[in-house]
């Protein structure tokens, strides 16, 4: 009986402690998680901001847009970086859990770049050709004006926003089973730079050591490379916004950070990293 009383006492104390922990003020650390495409940009923002605001601690991790949105829903991150808009199903989860539709902050623009090996003679591809290539219908470079060589595909993992955006807007069907999935656009660039028959896609910020391929909407259109002008004007056909998502309207430290990102200094870094500013 004594033992039982002791167990009851311990249980009650544990419950009270757990409830108390729930009300403990959270430390002033801002966590940012999500898009791998945005991870370099987000890290740069954090570094520069922390230099000018030494009292702030900003922790940035990648994992993909889907992972970031899940973390936002689960309360595991304060800010989610996403290279695609939030899906209705994700918004519903946020709504059910936090009574909020989330706050969407477009913070940069990106042109998804098509990477080719520097030795590849192909200079431009249409959206239809890209769809054929990444869905596995076009298997040889000679079918799109290149040499007689098998096309090797490099892409992102399915948790990546770039994967989803490229699939929904360019491939428009399933990716070919032969498409090698890699953890990050940097890995895609690295793989294509070493493979003469390789083709990959990713954010412009990572495009060094490979050749950019110009893209045209259809056979009649002109082909454009992803530049500040073509992405801003919408001429480059595979461009998108990069977003930051929050559970609730930002206040305090988070609001100050977001305002800084959308301000002159933050947007200057967007250009420096190789993306396109929204302001």
């Amino acid at each position: 009986m004594k033992k039982f009383k002791k167990i009851t006492r311990v249980t009650i104390i544990s419950l009270i402690t757990l409830t108390g922990l729930a009300f403990m003020p959270a430390p002033k650390k801002i966590t940012v998680k999500g898009s791998d495409t945005m991870v370099i940009l987000a890290q740069r923002w954090a570094e520069v901001y922390m230099k000018s605001h030494p009292e702030s601690v900003i922790q940035v991790t990648g994992g993909g847009s889907g992972v970031g949105i899940s973390a936002l829903i689960n309360g595991a991150t304060d800010i989610c970086n996403a290279s695609r808009p939030m899906k209705q199903s994700e918004m519903d989860k946020l709504k059910d859990r936090y009574a909020s539709l989330g706050v969407e902050v477009p913070c940069a623009k990106d042109g998804i770049t098509i990477f080719l090996n520097e030795s590849n003679p192909v200079k431009e591809l249409s959206l239809k050709q890209l769809s054929g290539i990444f869905s596995g219908k076009i298997l040889n470079w000679k079918e799109v004006g290149g040499t007689d060589a098998e096309i090797r595909l490099y892409g992102r993992e399915n948790s990546s926003g770039t994967y989803v955006f490229f699939k929904e807007n360019v491939v428009k069907t399933d990716y070919a089973a032969s498409c090698q999935t890699l953890p990050g656009t940097a890995a895609v660039v690295n793989a294509v730079s070493k493979d003469k028959s390789g083709i990959g896609y990713g954010g412009a910020a990572y495009a060094s050591g490979v050749k950019h391929c110009a893209v045209k909407k259809d056979d009649k259109s002109s082909a454009y490379l992803a530049t500040t002008e073509t992405v801003r004007s919408g001429q480059y056909p595979i461009s998108r916004y990069l977003y930051m998502y929050l559970r609730n309207r930002p206040t305090g430290e988070i609001k100050a950070y977001i305002d800084w990102i959308l301000g002159q200094e933050g947007q200057k870094l967007v250009t420096e990293i190789g993306y396109f500013p929204v302001k």
């Binding site: 009574a99 706050v103 609730n248």
Partner: peptide, 10 residues
């Protein structure tokens, strides 16, 4: 109705 008021109200 979902209102982003003091952390969320439904």
């Amino acid at each position: 109705v979902y209102i982003d008021l003091w952390g969320g109200l439904t």
